[in-house]
Design a protein around this nucleic acid. Structure first.
Lengths: 342, 342
DNA sequence: ATTAATTTTTAACGCGCGTAAAGTTTATTT
DNA sequence: AAATAAACTTTACGCGCGTTAAAAATTAAT
């Protein structure tokens, strides 16, 4: 690597012995230039490390190579994992991802849309907050920029939706819990997104099909501190001691983690061991679900498949345009992860 | 809001009844134009929502308003919290943060530096991976772009370092543990960054000053799956049952969470209750430490202070240039969080 | 060797905005 | 009211690159 700094593509192309437009073509798509000139350029690249000015490139390209990634709350390990995997897929597909977290606030979600607009991304992967999202503005955004919804579906918004099938995963869990003990009640908080609603509905349906009466317990809370909500709500319902069932299926793992903490504090032993008086199950296979005490029985979402498929779909959309007719949503099935809490 | 689309600042300035250079000045610093013209512009802004083209702006400004944020592993809730707070501070200070995660890989950390370079940021807030970071390249980067190191210090690299004082926090915990029971042994994994080394050293020193013999237990593992490392290592050492102490101070909370899971699985009761045979303490006050079973006694780092101070320092550096002489690192003190695990 | 097809070069324009210089208007001071 | 300062307008250039069209060079095919 030579010390001399290259200021711009003009200078660099001189070092290559190739004209600037050709070098420009190369950076757009290396395979679009003849092998011999590609070699010249790459040889120079070894010597002078030059990178085209990001801003100049993006200003002039019709569409950029940027992909926006929006998750509702990056401090939630589920979403930080999702974001991480999405990023990786984007890079592999030759795009530059930029990740944003709505921090659980619909207003912030809107602000992110504005930031995204100013980035003129080729496409957006969006896990919307859900419940409180400003639907109309979101819809307008999706019409402007190719957007794939991930994890949480908003009917009719975005080009497609890719997530998991709550109507498969929840019954799977309900059946398991019924087969191995008392039929579960359902522990939830005010739903933050459609998944929460679907899970409750799927629970109710599954219970009825098995000939049991569904019981839904809802506790208060309206932010993204799910553990806290599960804990405080858990303390209340466990202290009253009039649970409809000693098996509790939680709407998600974080809620379950809070509930388990409450049970522990009240001296209630959780698990499937003989001396336990409460079974708790979750949903999502949160990265820490393996390390709760007891380890959490839950449903594992197929992260890998969801994220890969999302990026694939978006890239297709970007490169071949949208097929208006087929907003065929993809739903992946969850796997039952049997551990020791239920 | 009027339907008509504004294409560029020229068009927009016409709508304002103000010249383009003045509008440009306004977007740079609203207070730099007369109140009356500011009103004109803002009135037009209400009607036509126009935003200057991001790429054109950044291409032409001497320095951008971007700040790069780099954390070693965003799926680690500690760092996702840190990233979140850093972002917020940057925005409040009028900058545009972009967050990157090294995903625990030094090579990826280097790639991020390249991406950052091409963004020409005004400054960078960096929590380096530590142990395996390519120090020389990092150093070169810091000389190019004003960089403040956060959380994990690399001697002599960056403009300043801001983090917590392990030599205050660890002794605080050691003293507490000694006062309330058996002196602790120290549970660690191969150190991923200087903090880990400092914590061990601080532990040893504190124990000796109190007249006790320090015992360090190191378990294997070299990635960022700390819970798994704590769990697997924990199973091994707990099964052998020749612990130097029934009180274990862990190098960090995630390790402690893994260790607690191992103890639970082996039927070892953890906590300060009379029937418990093992005490476990952590360090960092991980967002979930409150919800472990039992809840985790730990050291709380002053996130808020660290992040605010980091951004303040960087903004100062950006606006007033660097004072070469005073690389005066800032260390915040940790607070002892007494819960029920130790 | 001639022709056709492909690739590269040359030359030039435009993207949207920052910025600077010179001249003009507006506000402030005495 | 005149003098001065401050803010604004006009004009113009440049940033670094994408992109295009026409001309030139290279390669492949006949």
């Amino acid at each position: 690597m030579v010390a001399q700094k290259i200021r711009n593509m003009e200078e660099f192309s001189a070092k290559c012995g190739v004209s600037r437009p050709t070098v420009s073509k190369y950076f757009n798509e290396p395979s679009s230039v003849r092998a011999s000139t590609r070699q010249k350029i790459e040889a120079a690249l070894e010597q002078y490390d030059f990178r085209p000015n990001l801003y100049a490139v993006n200003q002039n390209r019709r569409i950029t190579k940027n992909i926006g990634i929006v998750v509702p709350y990056v401090a939630d390990p589920f979403f930080s994992e999702v974001a991480r995997k999405l990023e990786r897929c984007c890079i592999e597909a030759g795009f530059s991802p930029s990740t944003f977290s709505s921090h659980g606030s619909p207003d912030h979600e809107l602000e992110i849309l504005d930031i995204l607009r100013s980035m003129r991304p080729a496409g957006v992967l969006m896990a919307p907050i859900g419940r409180d999202s400003h639907k109309k503005k979101l819809e307008a955004f999706c019409k402007e920029i190719p957007t794939v919804l991930v994890d949480s579906n908003l009917e009719g918004i975005g080009a497609t939706f890719i997530g998991s099938n709550n109507f498969q995963s929840v019954p799977l869990m309900v059946e398991y819990l019924c087969r191995t003990g008392e039929p579960p009640c359902f522990f939830e908080m005010p739903p933050v997104n459609p998944n929460a609603n679907k899970r409750r509905a799927a629970y109710t349906q599954a219970m009825e099909e098995l000939g049991h009466t569904p019981h839904v317990i809802r506790v208060e809370g309206d932010d993204w501190e799910f553990e806290e909500i599960g804990y405080n709500g858990g303390l209340k319902i466990l202290e009253k001691n009039d649970l409809p069932s000693r098996t509790i299926l939680c709407s998600n793992d974080r809620l379950a983690i809070g509930l388990m903490a409450a049970a522990y504090e009240l001296g209630i032993k959780v698990g499937i061991a003989p001396d336990c008086t409460l079974r708790i199950a979750g949903h999502d296979d949160h990265p820490f679900a393996r390390y709760t005490c007891p380890s959490l029985t839950t449903i594992s979402q197929d992260y890998e498949a969801i994220t890969e498929r999302s990026v694939d779909t978006l890239v297709n959309l970007i490169e071949h345009g949208r097929n208006k007719r087929d907003r065929e949503d993809t739903l992946y099935e969850g796997r039952l992860i049997m551990r020791s809490s239920a």
